[in-house]
Design a binder for these strands. Structure first.
Lengths: 128, 128
DNA sequence: GCTTGACCTGGAGTGCGCTCCAGCTCGTAG
DNA sequence: CTACGAGCTGGAGCGCACTCCAGGTCAAGC
C-alpha cells in the first residue's frame, strides 16, 4: 500500500499523512528500494481510529501519547484503556452539553417564529 | 457595566471582548466621558448566547453574520431563524456522530479489558 | 500632589492543525 | 531514450481564535 492508496482510502492528504508520521501518530512504514513508503494493511484501521479520536475532540498531543503507548505493544493495554476511559468521559460530557445547547437553540427558534408571527412580512408592503 | 464586570461575569478576557467588538460580534457600547466602555445589561445575555453558538461548533464567520442580522432588528427574525435552523441540524448531526464514536470507544475499551485479562500483569514478574 | 489601578489603543505574537512549495528521484509506458 | 506521474525532502506559510504587549489616559484615595 503506497501513500496514494492511503490518501484515496482515508480522505487525508499526502502532506497530512507524512506530517502524522513526522509527529509520531503513524509508525514510520518500511520503504521500497525507491524510498517510497509501503504501508502495512493495518495502517488503514489505525488511521480510521485516529479519525474517531480526532472527531471526538482529542488533541494531537494526547493522540501522540496514545500512539506512543500503542507502539509499545500489549503491555500498555491498561494505560491505553485508562486514557480512552478518560476521553470517553469527556465525550459524554460534550454530548450532554451539546444536548443542552440544542434545547436553547430550539427555544430561540421558537421565539423567532413568534416574532415572525407578530410581524408577518420582513419588508411589509405599504398598507392602503 | 464596565468591561471588568463583563470579564468577571462571562469568563472571557478583556482582550477577547474587545476583539469580539472589533470583528462585529458585540455591538460597540457607548463610552463614559473617560472613554471607557459602558455595556448595556443585555450584552451579558448576548455574550452567553454567542457562547452557546461557539460551543456548538459555529465559527466566527457565521457568528458575525448572525450578529449583523441581530443588529438590524426584528425584520431579520426569519433570516436568523433559518440560520439557527441550519446550525441546529449540524448540531444534531454532531451529536449523532459523537454517539457513534462513543460506541466505538466502548468497544475498544472492552478489547483492552480482554487483553489485560489475558496478560494480567503489565510488567510480569519472572516465573520460577 | 501623587500614586494606584482600571481602562484605552494599535499592532505583534501564539498554538493548533494542517497545507503548500521548490526541487529532486524513481520506475514504467510509449 | 525520454517523458510523465507518483513519490521524496525540508522548510515556509496559512486560517482560526485568540492573547499579549508597550505605552498612554483617567479618576479616586491618601
Amino acid at each position: 500500500m503506497f501513500i496514494g492508496d492511503l490518501v484515496a482510502a482515508t480522505g487525508l492528504g499526502h502532506d497530512t499523512l507524512r506530517w502524522y508520521e513526522k509527529i509520531g501518530l503513524i509508525p514510520p512504514p518500511p520503504r521500497d528500494r525507491g524510498g517510497r513508503r509501503v504501508y502495512p494493511g493495518e495502517t488503514l484501521a489505525w488511521i480510521a481510529f485516529l479519525g474517531r479520536l480526532k472527531s471526538t475532540g482529542m488533541g494531537i498531543a494526547e493522540m501522540r501519547v496514545y500512539a506512543a503507548l500503542r507502539a509499545q505493544g500489549d503491555v500498555t493495554a491498561a494505560a491505553r484503556r485508562e486514557l480512552l476511559e478518560r476521553h470517553r468521559e469527556r465525550v459524554r460530557a460534550a454530548i450532554a452539553a451539546l444536548g443542552e445547547n440544542l434545547a436553547v437553540l430550539d427555544d430561540k427558534i421558537e421565539i423567532y417564529r413568534t416574532i415572525e408571527a407578530a410581524a408577518p412580512c420582513p419588508t411589509p408592503e405599504i398598507q392602503p
